[in-house]
Every structure is written in C-alpha cells, then in structure tokens.
Design a protein around this nucleic acid. Structure first.
Lengths: 142, 142
DNA sequence: ATGAGTGCAAATGCTTTGCATCCTG
DNA sequence: CAGGATGCAAAGCATTTGCACTCAT
C-alpha cells in the first residue's frame, strides 16, 4: 500500500455503486490490493492484512475479493494449472506474461503488446476468446 | 471414441518414446481422449471409461492424464476460475474460445484466428505470454 | 524378484458455506 | 431491530499421495 491513490478512491466509489458497505475490512482489502501489481493470492493479501488487523478472517478476504470482483474493482486470474487464484486490480483490458520458472505475473498493456515484454523471453502465447457460442446465441436471452 | 485413428497410433508411439508401459488403462484413456474435441475433464473421462472398465480408478485417470501430458500427448487447460482442469488432445499451438453461458470450449487454429470464430460472438480476448522473466534469465540455468 | 502401474482410501489445499454474533442504519 | 457483514469452524471439491497388491518383464 502506498499513499491514498486515485485508484483507492475509484474503488471505494465502485463499492458505493454496488451498494456494498465500506467496512473497515473491505477498505483494508482495497488498500492492500489496489496499487499492487504483483497479482497476489488471497492468502498473500490475508497475511499482509492480518498484521494490521489481527481479527481479519480468511473468509472475509475471500468474500471481499469476490465482492470487489463483482463490483468491477479487480479481476481474478487462474494462470497456471497448479496455482491458486490471483487478483489483479488493473481492470482495463490487458494481457499477462507468466514466468515459467518463478511464477511471476507481469501486466502487458494492450497498446504495447510485444514491445512491452522485450525483457521477457516468450516461449509460447495462449489466447482465450470469451463470448457466446453459436448455440447459445440462437437461444437468445440476456 | 471413433475407429482407431492416426492420432491413437501417434499417442501410443509417444508412450513408447516416454518409456511408459502401454497398459490397458492407459490405452483406454488414450482412446477416450485422443479424438475428443470437447475438452473433457478428468471426471468426464473417468465416467466414460468406468462403463467399459469397471475397475478403472479415478487416481489412475489422473495419473495417466498427467503422464500423457508429460509425454506430449495432451495439454491441460484451466480456462475459467471455477472450472476443473480440461484436457486437450490437440497439442499443436492453437487458441480457445470459451462460451460464457454454457462453458463450451472450442479450438481456434492459429492460421485462422478470428476468421474461424465467426460464429462465436467475441466479448473479450485474453492473452498469456509464457516464458522467462528478466530476473530468471539473468540467473541462467536449464 | 524387480519395478512400474493400479486401485483404494486417506490426505491435501484452495475455496465456499453455515451460523452465531456484531454493527450500522 | 432488521439486514448486511464478520469471524470462526466445518464442509466441499478437485487433485494428489501412500501403500499394498498385481502383473509383466
């Protein structure tokens, strides 16, 4: 956590919009997450917060992260088969570079694509298109 | 499973190369997986095989799928946060389209990219670059 | 008989849930 | 005081592991 940033305020505003109470626990999670580019796991966030708020429970961290995701404040990522979920406060569309050796996850802004990851030695690229398949389109609905 | 295909033979050859015994269980898993484009989970493969081989155990399916992955016969995918691992017998580089509504996973060959998924309404694209970060490169090693 | 492979069950690890309690409005 | 939120513990799943047994070399 750095100084109160614009991102913190935007996140708290998103909580309002989602009609979620700004409890001390949620504010703490927001502070811990919102300026963190390391893509922490729920466990890492919990460990960090526990120091400053010893009553914080693991379940609250999980529930809060899920709430924040629903409120559009963060996204959860499952980038490797054997890793737990990681949380990314950068909600603008962007990509990720995952290190095979240390597991580090780097953000790759869309505008730069390959340029941004010059220092990253790319072995493979995986693309996932998300959307609606033909069958589901024809069914219609929301 | 269809008629014995070229893919089956290639997979069995890969087992040889990896010095893995071609046991009835492994052959059954190969047959169940290798011509299946639906990206089944281990559970789905197990359910299917259990019918024709009632002694087949879940652990064997898991272990066999991991062995097949190491042998280069298939890849495991974790495409959504809440889904279990899916197995893809198509090992050539390609991408995936995931339906938000039904969870269906479609293969998207590299050559075609967007053209191939005309009938799929794309909401978002996610890219993952896999490789080695700068720090790990400088450490060197294998 | 040696060692890989299997099958069962138990263990593990991440995540979710139930529920009593606590606030806050 | 009503409903949302928290904290704890327990439950759920998917996946992995330990171990005794089997089977092919």
């Amino acid at each position: 956590m750095r100084r109160p940033s614009a991102r913190v305020n935007a996140a708290l505003a998103a909580l309002d919009r989602a009609e979620l109470r700004k409890t001390p626990q949620r504010i703490a999670v927001v502070h811990a997450l919102v300026d963190d580019t390391s893509h922490p796991t729920a466990q890492q966030i919990f460990d960090r917060l526990r120091r400053q708020m010893p009553t914080m429970s693991f379940a609250t961290v999980y529930n809060t992260l899920a709430a924040l995701e629903r409120a559009g404040v963060c996204r959860s990522l499952r980038l490797s088969h054997d890793d737990s979920a990681r949380f990314d406060p950068m909600v603008e569309p962007h990509d990720h570079a995952v290190c095979d050796r240390c597991g580090r996850v780097l953000d790759v802004p869309r505008a730069r694509e390959r340029a941004e990851i010059q220092e990253f030695r790319v072995r493979a690229v995986e693309r996932v298109y998300r959307g609606e398949c033909q069958q589901c389109q024809s069914i219609g609905g929301s």
